[in-house]
Design a protein around this nucleic acid. Structure first.
Length: 503
RNA sequence: GCGGGUGAAGUUCAGCGGCAGAACACCCCGUUCUCAUCGGGGAGGUCGGAGGUUCAAAUCCUCUCAUCCGCGCCA
């Protein structure tokens, strides 16, 4: 059994904790996850925190939290452990040191004493001459004595990989066969010193020692791949398969960055986008099932995902489509779950505050409101909700003592203030005679429409002012439903207030 | 500049030698209170451009243009 054991499929996502989990990174994570789960492999989270200055543990925590929230679960990672840890680069320094020393001993890497200023001058000169900016190799052939002397003098050094002059060809699962000439790359830096590896080197060591079989990452890494392959060959490691995914871009076709608005998964979470919507949306950027199906759960995606269906062109982040998907998932939720998710948004907007189990206080009116009443309000807005943080604005009219709006808003088309007030009076008289227990939307609609018919009041001429009187809004749910939730007393109060405004 | 990637409705993408399609967004209708939902319909394309192969090209070939990414002691 052992001799024929099939090599395990292992993929990884390797974010650096220098910021929040970016939607682009999350999408790469999703594709890794879907591929691994579809193939029965393992998905690993590795934190690339070799840059101590920019890395921050709080971002590691945030990345982990966002991944969990999205439901992109990994089999191995810093917080869940695994057989190939540790999963933070900052904790793997011994391993890097060992291979760094090996490269140095084999003369496949060397110490370089050029200063950053010197290198900058060199690069500028090369660019000016129309040459690619490549390290000159000035320190490539120092002898042991010279190196020792420079070190003794306390000269700052860096370790460079001696790039062999070869052609590197590899097959990318998405882009096809890619070819690079290493002479256009030069001797790249791989570590600041034995204890401080740099990205391209650390990746190679980690992917090997973590037995990564497929490297699935953004296409911005394509030009790093030949560098990494050169090192893999120098160290006689096993070469993984590569898949470079198209990037996700902002509407102006440049990299998605802060100036385009929200970029972090945490931002979308805060705005009230649901993980299901985000997963569905991200999956469709650069991939599609080749059917007309638009909605997919994570489980369905795992089942149907295939690398062959990945698009080659970059995808533009289309917030309109995300909004549509999010609205769809909100509409699909059962009312209890939706209400539970909505309450924090109402609390954060200072509309209500919790005063005990299932009880809240309406902050502006100092009245009590319970879970059932909140559910009714949310039910009314469910089909109108695009994202959860839209809710406070949509429902605040329920949770206020008095509405403030321009009196002209009460006037339907060419109606005068006097006519409008008269219509409101008619409705008021009718409602005053309806029992509290009959104050239901069905009955109210029946009675009010009967009144409109009988007195020839006009539908728009009556319902528009009524609805504005109750909500103060030019767009809202119908007046009957609002009136039922408001209750008889408040409904009458608001009609009176509207009449006062018109007087 | 050098290297690499990519070009199909505004956007996300099917189509890969045989009549250019779907979804989102937009407009109209069902729907005379507004919004929304749901259903139906419409508008929107020289398939980046030019040449070639072919009875036939979005599709195959050549060139060209545009655009993005990379060229750090960042990842």
């Amino acid at each position: 059994m052992l001799k024929n054991k099939k090599e395990e499929l292992r993929v990884r996502i390797a974010p650096s904790p220098t910021g929040y989990l970016h939607v682009g990174t999350a999408r790469i994570a999703l594709f890794n996850y879907l591929f691994a789960k579809n193939q029965g492999g393992k998905f690993i989270l590795r934190i690339e925190d070799t840059d101590l200055e920019r890395s921050d543990e709080k971002f590691t925590k945030e990345i982990i939290e966002s991944l969990h929230w999205l439901g992109i679960n990994y089999d191995e990672g810093p917080d869940v452990g695994g057989d190939f840890g540790p999963y933070r680069q900052s904790e793997r320094l011994k391993t890097y040191k060992k291979y760094l020393q090996q490269l140095l001993d084999e003369n496949k890497a060397y110490y370089c004493f050029c200063t950053e200023e010197e290198l900058e001058v060199e690069r500028q000169a090369q660019t000016k001459r129309g040459e690619p900016p490549i390290y000159s190799g000035r320190c490539a052939n120092l002898n042991a004595e010279q190196i020792k002397k420079s070190h003794d003098e306390g000269k700052k050094s860096i370790i460079r990989f001696r790039m062999p002059n070869i052609k590197i060809i590899f097959e990318d699962m998405i882009k096809g066969v890619l070819e690079f000439e290493t002479r256009l790359i030069g001797d790249i830096t791989i570590a600041k010193n034995l204890e401080t590896p740099l990205y391209n080197f650390a990746v190679v060591i980690d992917d090997e020692t973590m037995k990564i079989s497929h490297v699935i990452r953004g296409e911005d890494h394509i030009s790093n791949t030949p560098k990494q392959i050169a090192m893999i060959e120098a160290l006689e490691f096993k070469k993984p398969k590569y898949a470079h995914l198209p990037l996700t871009l902002a509407p102006d076709k440049t990299k998605l960055s802060k100036r385009h608005g929200a970029t972090a998964i945490a931002d979308y979470r805060a705005m009230g986008y649901l993980p299901e919507a985000l997963i569905n949306f991200m999956a469709f950027m650069g991939w599609n099932p080749k059917t007309d199906q638009e909605f997919f759960t994570k489980e369905e995606l795992v089942k149907i995902f295939s690398m062959a269906n990945i698009n080659k062109a970059a995808a533009i982040f289309n917030i309109e489509k995300l909004n549509w998907l999010n609205g769809h998932y909100i509409r699909q939720m059962d009312l209890s779950s939706l209400t539970e998710k909505c309450i924090p948004y109402l609390e954060n907007a200072n509309l209500i505050n919790g005063v005990g189990a299932g009880e809240w206080n309406i902050m502006k009116t100092d009245e009590a409101i319970n879970l059932d009443q909140l559910k009714k309000i949310i039910a009314l807005e469910q089909e109108r909700l695009v994202k959860l943080d839209d809710l406070p604005e949509l429902v605040s009219f329920f949770l206020k003592k008095e509405l403030t709006f321009d009196k002209d808003l009460l006037l339907w088309k060419k109606m005068t203030a006097a006519e409008t007030a008269e219509h409101l009076s008619e409705v008021e008289k009718l409602l005053a005679n309806i029992d509290k227990k009959n104050f239901t939307k069905e009955n109210l609609e029946k009675e009010i429409k009967k009144l409109i018919e009988k007195d020839k009041l006009g539908v728009g001429e009556t319902l528009w002012p009524l609805r504005v009187a109750l909500t103060g809004l030019k767009a809202s749910p119908p007046p009957f439903e609002v009136a039922e939730i408001l209750g008889k007393e408040k409904t009458l109060q608001r009609i009176l207030a509207a009449k006062d405004l018109l007087a």
